[in-house]
Amino acid sequence: MSEGKSARVLVVTSGKGGVGKTTSTAAMGAALAHLGEKVVVIDFDVGLRNLDLVLGAERRVVFDLINVINGVAKLQQALIRDKRLENLYLLPASQTRDKDALTEEGVAKVIAELRTKFDWIVCDSPAGIERGATLAMRHADAAIIVTNPEVSSVRDSDRIIGLLDSKTERAERGECVDKHLLITRYHPWRAARGEMLSIEDVLEILSIPLLGIIPESEEVLRASNVGSPVTVNAALSAPARAYFDATRRLKGEQIPMQIPNESRSIFNKLFGRKAA
């Protein structure tokens, strides 16, 4: 592995579970790797790991983050290289240990070592605000707050933003973590009918910059079913295009924000429902 790099540490977080943190970590980690960046994605969900499954690497896990922290394995032994994207690596969480096995010093050491070897370190946070979540955000330079346009998700995101502004290394140094809002599972037609919080509503309430809008799509489910990030498995689908746009914005490119749409039939347009 090449030395002398200085990675950007990114945490993908949300507070609420099930909003799409792991899916987004996999999709954007793969998109970054596809764009030529050297990426490691780390699963911080000790005891309930899933990033390995979503990336299709579940049968290749030998050592994990806890093993590295405890000195049972070297970092290189625990990193799993993606079979499709040679720039993408996974550091899995432990499935058998409990979250107390994550130590602050251990995580700091692993992140420091990874910083010299990668361009991006993407930390997939567990849900909640406990140890796993606070350690996942601890060293972050930037954060992606994954939010569904739904009251409980928005409330939890607000709480997480408060933690990013107070409990991270950067916050304690008096600096800021760059915060980016990623809205997932968005139904444009539901928002248009006033049945779902609109993008404007969520932005006004959370007041952090918008990174992207990922439309609800069966392609996302299909991608996890087969263990391949949606940006690899269906690169031209609406959610994949939205993830690619978000990834380019994360890299600093100026890309106009548009809400990707999947084609809908006349029937759907008239009645606002997706045909089963």
Binding site: R155, G194, M196
Partner: peptide
């Protein structure tokens, strides 16, 4: 807009208002 939306008012404005009040308190 579609045919159904003419007959139905959405609940999103209620969600938005409830959130704004709640979060103002939680931030305080």
């Amino acid at each position: 807009m579609n045919l159904l939306s003419i007959f139905r008012r959405g609940s999103a404005p209620v969600a938005r208002e409830r959130l704004q009040i709640l979060l103002a308190h939680e931030r305080d």
